[in-house]
Amino acid sequence: MAAATRPTPRGAEEASAGEERRVLEPGAAPFGNFPHYSRFHPPELRLRLLPPELLQRLFPNESPNPRPILGLDVGCNSGELSVALYKHFLSLRDGEAHADAARELRLLCCDIDPVLVARAEKESPFPGALTFITLDFMNQRTRKVLLSSFLSQFGCSVFDIGFCMSITMWIHLNHGDQGLWEFLAHLSSLCHYLLVEPQPWKCYRAAARRLRKLGHHDFDHFRSLAIRGDMANQIVEILTQDHGMELVCCFGNTSWDRSLLLFKAKQTQEIISSLNH
């Protein structure tokens, strides 16, 4: 897929009609592309678990002209959480950064749903810092082109940090066990650090139940999944045992019972000790 473009007036009407249908049938969003996701999982309830100085501690300013910290937000929906993350980590209040905000942050935010991406792009208060694109992350060819294009602007081949917030279940349901394994493999190869919020297994059952209630076909892989149970632990095992990452810290659980897990590609004992304290 390509980067999203602003819809024409007719396209906007069709997009609006599509959103109305999805509001009426929220369970019919097969990729988690709910049109008003932040209403039932507000960004601030996640952010209160994350220290605002996290990125400053992970990426200290060690040169007079440092490049921006590069972040990848996979499954950004309509951008509310992306914007909230940006403001939170730069300690932004009313658009002004605190004096101790050490480095700039640039986020590449992607989602499979072009309607949501168009809305995120239109409503973003930080168009120079947040880039929104339509992307099926499991499409290897498109993923490589779009991510490389962004990274090359900064002379980099990987992101400093990736955000995967309540996305793993949708990958798992739509692409199966192998798809989840490959998704985590791609992410771990693209990011020095990775912040993951896995959905617990009860969310899988609820998603399948919503589809059935609406008369839709079940997810193709739901009944055949072998990776199940404690999904946070399953994802920790895949990332640490199969993909060479290390669990740095668990920041706790959200009010909807999802863990916020920080992983690193290579061990840095000083950072681990600091975060644990």
Rank of each mutant, 00 (worst) to 15 (best):
L105D: 08
R48H: 12
H98F: 03
P52D: 01
G71L: 14
G18R: 11
I271R: 07
L151P: 04
L92Q: 12
N253M: 11
D257Q: 10
D136Q: 07
T5P: 01
K144E: 00
G18S: 10
R22M: 11
L55M: 05
F137A: 05
E96Y: 12
S273F: 07
K144L: 03
G155D: 03
D218H: 06
R106D: 11
S16K: 13
L54W: 01
E182P: 02
P7L: 08
D73V: 02
R67N: 11
V115I: 14
F222G: 03
S148F: 04
D111N: 10
T142S: 15
L211E: 05
R93C: 15
S38H: 14
R223S: 15
A118M: 12
A206M: 10
T168N: 12
L54E: 01
S16I: 13
R10H: 05
L190H: 09
M1D: 01
L135S: 02
M138N: 08
H88N: 08
S188I: 04
L260Q: 08
Y37T: 00
R48Y: 13
G79K: 01
F40I: 04
S188R: 06
A118Q: 13
P68N: 06
N33V: 01
P51D: 05
I161D: 02
N77G: 04
S78A: 15
A84V: 10
V83Q: 14
L262K: 05
H98E: 14
D160I: 03
P26D: 06
L260D: 05
R212P: 00
F40Q: 04
A102D: 14
R39W: 15
M138S: 07
L107N: 11
T254K: 06
Q178N: 13
M138F: 09
G27P: 01
H41N: 11
R21W: 09
P43K: 02
A101C: 12
H277S: 13
F251E: 06
L107Y: 05
W201A: 08
A2R: 11
